[in-house]
Design a protein around this nucleic acid. Structure first.
Length: 709
DNA sequence: GTGCCTCGAGTTCC
DNA sequence: CTCGAGGCAC
């Protein structure tokens, strides 16, 4: 950033121009602040702009604008998009990339449901529109709000804009009291071309592709702009409903259509995978003529009862899948290979590419995974790309996996320069010079420098303040980088964050005097840090950045031990591979030897242990509360299924029991609370009798949990 | 021991 | 979003 010139040097015209620019910049920042997780500028920069604006106004009072940002202090900033929590999560879909994946999908479902054959297992197939998904909530027949998908839990409130889209009725009659309709907002090819022509003639920026145009149009803060954009909406799913929409997917779609929504009339009802694949080929052949972008075909189990039984994995339903079209590829030249160092020390090669357009987006970087991938081998040592390696200056085929992540698929050896040498993967860390070691059976090479390595230290800190961890407002990745380098108030380890205010008070060079840091932003930052001083145990555990400990396992571990002190005590007593603490740890759901070892080492190695101690001292750690399954009769019980289950399959019974807070084990032991024995139960039932464990028939079990729906 | 299933880690672009 | 690998069931 260039240093602003002294106010006294400016001419009147220059000052006026700068004030206008500042008004515009600050106005935009104000909006962004309320609508975006990642504001365009930091609080510090924001404060700097405001300060500059005030200085200019002081020097040139006559130039003060009617829309001066200084008059808007504290005024709640333009109505941006509020957040809306979806009543039912908006899930994403699993992907199938070839016919084999589709067959696997269908067999998996048959197995889960315990069906002998394809009989009665019908699917719907419909084009997968390449737009953005939207959830519309109707209460008593009126549209009350519309929300984007967001992260699936919470989306943005775009109601005023949604009201302007064709295919979205404001009122519907004959619908359930509560009805959330979900579908895709998209732009047709002809409309997209016309819009870009108009944009160009006005000198405005053209959109890269219809999806971006649709997204940009829907997320206009000014609905009058959205009104001029030709958006359409297809309904294909629903969220919360107060009454069922039917018994099948197909009927439900028909109902939505009757209610006044546009549904895609390419939707077909299919029996068995052969018919699904026929639809896929048919749609693929007619793809260009549909008039809008699609990126595949979606298959859904037709029977809603089956959909219910199948349920969902963590982010995707088991009853639907997206069969994707092959990705578009582009040819470009590999300019360089750079090595990034992650928080675990992993050295990741990234390809710097001659920029090239792939699927409507300009790509200039792509991941190269690891050293084996560059050399033409996969993790098992099998040749990929027929063993062709990738060299700097090579011509390569780039595609976007899942239409997002740029990857290099292949290399054109015939165009290879004579003097191109095989790439030599660094054996030392490019950031700190420590040895980079690859452990047996591991596909990544890691910097051995630990926290000595600045790259690892910074990445660990970024993780520490990230969303699922401490999530401190105003202290994101950029601020971490800045503070890490700071001469007077450096943040080198997590504990430094919680000492920042005290250190600032004791320091001569105050944060507030620093370039870009205003009094206000400093107060805000300290408040945000203070707010996170009290932290749930699971979040803290996740934030520490111990290898293999993600959000899920952190939750499980916190749940198991209950308190920070319990974890510290157990980990210090533990020995690797044996003993009571080790066994206890392995008993935690989701914890195996690799995680256990990483956890114990982290709590025993002096550097990390001491850093944890320094941190814990400054925090108020909330004990983990036992899961609240107060309405569940089997919460916290360990159950074992044995014998043949008649109405449900094993997998289904297990999934069901787990959602009710029960732990499902494979064998009967003293810890088992209930054994559900079907016909053919053998040794396990016998053991249950010996141990005096409660034994239920399948019927009794269902009666027990039945009330939970 | 083998084969799913999920989670964790790393990455890109807007 | 994907890959690899850890964890777990069979």
């Amino acid at each position: 950033m260039t240093e602003p010139r002294d106010v006294s040097e400016l001419t009147k015209a220059e000052a006026a121009a700068e004030l206008a620019a500042l008004a515009e910049q600050l106005g935009r920042a104000n909006q962004k602040y309320h609508t975006d997780d990642a504001p365009e500028i930091s609080d510090a920069e924001y404060d700097a702009l405001k300060a500059r604006n005030a200085a200019l106004e002081a020097a040139f009072p006559a130039l003060k604008r009617p829309d001066s940002p200084s008059d808007q202090v504290g005024a709640p900033l333009a109505e941006g998009f509020g957040k809306i929590r979806h009543a039912r999560r908006m899930m994403s879909l699993g992907n199938a990339f070839d016919e084999g994946d589709v067959v696997d999908f269908a067999t998996g479902i048959r197995r889960f449901l315990g069906l002998q054959s394809d009989d009665g297992l019908a699917f719907t197939a419909e084009p997968k529109i390449d737009g953005l998904s939207l959830s519309l909530r109707y209460e008593d027949g009126s549209l009350v709000h519309a929300a984007t998908r967001g992260d699936g839990e919470t989306g943005e409130n775009v109601t005023p804009n949604a009201r302007l889209i064709s295919g979205i009725p404001h009122k519907i009659s004959g619908a359930p009291e509560i009805l959330e309709v979900r579908g895709e907002v998209y732009m047709r090819h002809d409309d997209f071309a016309a819009l870009n022509l108009a944009q160009a003639s006005r000198g405005d920026k053209e959109f890269a592709n219809p999806r971006n145009a649709a997204a940009g149009s829907l997320r206009q803060l000014d609905p009058s702009i959205t009104a001029t954009r030709p958006l359409h909406f297809f309904a294909y799913a629903w969220g919360e409903v107060s009454a069922p929409l039917g018994t099948t997917q197909f009927d439900a779609l028909k109902l939505l259509k009757n209610l006044g929504f546009l549904t895609n009339d390419e939707t077909r009802l299919c029996n068995g995978t052969a018919e699904l694949l026929a639809v896929y080929r048919d749609i693929a052949a007619r793809r260009a003529g549909l008039g809008y972008d699609i990126d595949g075909v979606v298959y859904k189990v037709n029977d809603l009862g089956y959909q219910d039984r199948l349920g969902a994995r963590s982010t995707t339903p088991r009853w639907a899948i997206a069969h994707k079209f092959p990705a578009e590829i582009a040819i470009t030249q590999l300019l360089d290979i750079e090595i990034q160092v992650g928080r675990t020390g992993a050295l990741s090669p990234v390809a710097r590419l001659q920029p090239v357009t792939v699927g409507g987006v300009v790509v200039s970087n792509a991941t190269l995974h690891n050293e084996d991938y560059i050399q033409g081998r996969d993790s098992k040592g099998q040749a990929i790309r027929d063993g062709r390696d990738i060299r700097i200056s090579d011509w390569v085929e780039v595609y976007r996996a899942g239409d997002v992540i740029p990857k290099i698929r292949d290399v054109d050896i015939s165009r290879r320069a004579q003097d191109a040498l095989p790439y030599r993967f660094p054996q030392t860390c490019p950031e700190c010079g420590s040895d980079a070691i690859r452990e047996a059976g591991d596909s990544v090479r890691r910097c051995s420098g630990g926290l000595i390595c600045p790259a690892q230290a910074i990445e660990k800190l970024k993780h520490f303040v990230s969303r699922g961890a401490f999530d401190i407002e105003g202290l994101g990745a950029r601020q971490i980088e800045m503070f890490f380098e700071d001469r007077d108030l450096p943040i080198r380890e997590p504990a430094d964050i919680f000492r920042l205010e005290d250190r600032d008070a004791a320091n001569l060079t105050k944060l507030a005097n620093r370039d870009g840091f205003g009094e206000k932003s400093v107060t805000k930052l300290f408040a945000a840090i203070e707010e996170k001083r009290r932290i749930p145990l699971a979040r803290l555990l996740f934030a520490l950045g111990i290898r293999h400990v993600g959000e899920t396992s952190a939750n499980m571990i916190a749940q198991h031990f209950g308190s920070w002190q319990a974890i510290v005590d157990a980990m210090q007593k533990a020995t690797l591979g044996e003993g009571r603490e080790w066994d206890d740890l392995l008993n935690v759901d989701g914890v195996g030897p690799a995680l256990a070892q990483a956890l114990i080492s982290a709590f025993q190695q002096p550097e990390t242990r001491e850093a944890f101690e320094r941190l814990a001292e400054l925090l108020d750690i909330e004990d983990a509360k036992p899961l609240d399954h107060s309405n569940s009769p089997v919460a916290g019980k360990t159950v074992v299924f044995t014998g043949t289950l008649e109405t449900v399959t094993r997998a289904e019974a297990k999934a069901r029991a787990e959602t009710l807070g029960a732990k499902v084990a494979g064998s009967v032991s003293a810890k088992t609370d209930i054994v559900i024995a079907g016909p053919g139960a053998g040794s396990k039932a016998k053991k249950a009798v010996e141990l005096g464990v409660e034994i239920l028939s399948e019927e009794e079990w269902l009666a027990l949990i039945g009330s939970e729906g």
